[in-house]
Design a binder for these strands. Structure first.
Length: 504
RNA sequence: GCCCCCAUCGUCUAGAGGCCUAGGACGCCACCCUUUCAAGGUGGAGAUCAGGGGUUCGAAUCCCCUUGGGGGCACCA
């Protein structure tokens, strides 16, 4: 089997074309990923294009969020834009639609001249009234064709009145079909397309269905791999490719990512922004692995695959047809798997921003050094489902005044007096250790001996010490934790707990 | 309302007519390990393959119908 990375097929070009009208959406990232996987598997080119013609809703900020999010995930493109202001990369530049306006204007002009499109003077009010009437009559909404057959004189008269027309594309009768890469043959009668559709607004700015086709044609896109929500739009696009005299690309429609209730994933019901996942401590390896398995499967029983392995095994024929619900539990599990696989120095680097943020938020009083964090790794790495979990897990190491709940301090089988007695006895044993012998395997034997001598259960004493020194009932191994805490603070916290029990 | 798509454990999925007494993973439960929590190990519950008709010697797999779910029908993308 040839190595996919060394194969190269210049005729295969795919693209991701998000619009900067919101932060990078998990669904966009998934579509980008599948395009990336397809391109890399077959040695094609992956193009990134920004569809920013909705000027009212597009912002530079969203643009930056999308670009940075994709970079963070490692879904790199071969051709496309860089962050606002920087130059585009690739032979088909520019890759922002607002910089490609002349191309759409020229294409629209060609369609107009060939009478494949026509000027439409209908007002928003008229169209709205049409829609309402159709709805009342329980008819599907469609353009009534009021301006389809205007004579040259009628058009001239409207223009003379100062009316600015939109441009409508003539939908020809017949059936349009294509062999979908994922769902085989699909055929749709153009009578169900809703009539002639607008390709250029009255203000002269082009609309999505038009720009996407003009650009896919201009950029020689060979395979359009996108979400299932575009299936119904595909006939419009095919019609446009034909009208423009350009060969029709292949289409593949990916299953949608669904909310837990099975509806199309939305901000309302799910967390959709990639940056939010990142902020919660999901790492790219986990997210990528999870996203790739949403609607695709290698066919083997491997659950944990790095991106290179996924590229090597990717096969668009094996992409699922039905939508996939987003399962956060599974994402967290996979994320934990990947955190466990990280090299120590790498993990320390990735943990740092989360610790800094906790310090800024006042969750911890002191920012630990990298060495300090690195020393902790053996006891925390396998306990982190996310990077952010580090604060909950061992944040007690970096706070000045520990908040201890007296109720939690007393083990289930013990009472307050026994607990006070136990902690005091433990303190006495621990005082015998200096800074040199303050090691996990030095601290454990004498405490076990104490338990033995007093007829206690190890678990009870250890739990009391655990809560006294960390404020929590669930922590990394106790003796390692006390070493991380240090002799002085361990003893001080034991004192404080004893005091707390005496007061109560 | 119209058009289109989809349908295997709660969830993600394996399955390309006999390998299926339907496999794996997440989650759940139990046990082991164990000072707690994780991790790891072992085992378990969990799917009459949406239902009904065909085709076939044989159907989760092919065909049809029904049902259910989803998506789309803008001078949004």
């Amino acid at each position: 089997m040839p190595d996919p990375e060394t194969r190269s097929d210049p005729t295969i070009r795919v693209r991701i074309a998000p619009s900067p009208t919101g932060p990078l959406h998990i669904g966009t990232a998934r579509t980008a990923l599948f395009n990336y996987l397809y391109a890399h598997h077959v040695g094609g080119t992956f193009v990134f294009r920004l569809e920013d013609t909705d000027v009212a809703r597009s912002t530079t900020e969203f643009e930056r969020d999308i670009l940075e999010g994709l970079h963070w995930l490692g879904i790199e493109w071969d051709e496309g834009p860089e962050v606002a202001g920087e130059g585009d990369i690739g032979a088909y530049a520019p890759y922002r639609q607002m910089q490609r306006l002349p191309g759409y204007a020229a294409a629209a002009e060609r369609l107009l001249e060939a009478d494949l499109a026509y000027p439409c003077f209908c007002t928003p009010e008229q169209l709205e009234a049409d829609r309402r009437a159709q709805e009342a009559a329980k008819l599907p909404p469609r353009y009534v064709g009021r301006c389809a057959d205007l004579t040259a004189a009628e058009r001239a008269a409207k223009l003379a009145e100062g009316l600015r027309p939109a441009t409508r594309f003539r939908v020809r009768p017949g059936v349009v079909g294509w062999n979908d890469l994922i769902r085989d043959r699909i055929e749709i009668d153009t009578a169900n397309l809703g009539g002639d559709f607008v390709i250029v607004r009255a203000d002269g700015t082009p609309l999505y269905h038009f720009t996407v086709v003009v650009d896919d044609a201009a950029m020689e896109i060979s395979h359009v791999i996108r979400g299932e929500d575009h299936v119904s739009n595909t006939p419009k696009h095919i019609l446009l490719f034909e009208a423009l005299g350009h060969p029709v690309p292949e289409f593949g429609h990916l299953p949608l990512i669904l909310n837990p209730d099975g509806t199309k994933m939305s901000k309302r019901k799910s967390q959709t922004a990639v940056d939010d996942y990142r902020a919660q401590g999901f790492i790219r390896e986990g997210l990528l692995n999870y996203l790739a398995y949403l609607g695709w499967h290698p066919g083997t029983e491997d659950d944990i695959l790095a991106i290179e392995e996924i590229v090597a095994r990717f096969d668009i024929d094996k992409v699922q047809k039905g939508g996939a619900r987003f399962d956060r539990d599974r994402l967290e599990w996979l994320n934990g798997q990947w955190i466990r696989r990280l090299e120590p120095d790498d993990l320390v680097d990735r943990l740092r921003p989360f610790l800094e943020r906790a310090a800024e938020a006042g969750q911890i009083d002191r920012l630990p050094s990298d060495d300090e964090v690195r020393a902790l790794l053996p006891i925390v790495q396998e306990r982190l489902p996310t990077l952010a979990a580090i604060v909950d897990l061992v944040g007690f190491l970096w706070v000045e005044d520990l908040d201890v709940d007296p109720g939690v301090l007393i083990p289930k089988r013990w009472d307050a007096a026994t607990t006070r007695d136990g902690l005091a006895a433990a303190r006495e044993v621990l005082v015998a250790h200096d800074g040199v012998t303050w090691e996990a395997d030095e601290l454990e034997p004498p405490l076990r001996a104490l338990v033995e001598a007093r007829g206690w259960k190890a678990g009870d004493l250890f739990m009391a010490i655990r809560v006294a020194t960390t404020g929590r009932t669930a922590t990394p191994p106790l003796f390692d934790t006390m070493v991380a805490l240090g002799r002085d603070r361990t003893l001080a916290r034991l004192d404080a707990a004893i005091g707390l029990l005496a007061a109560a």
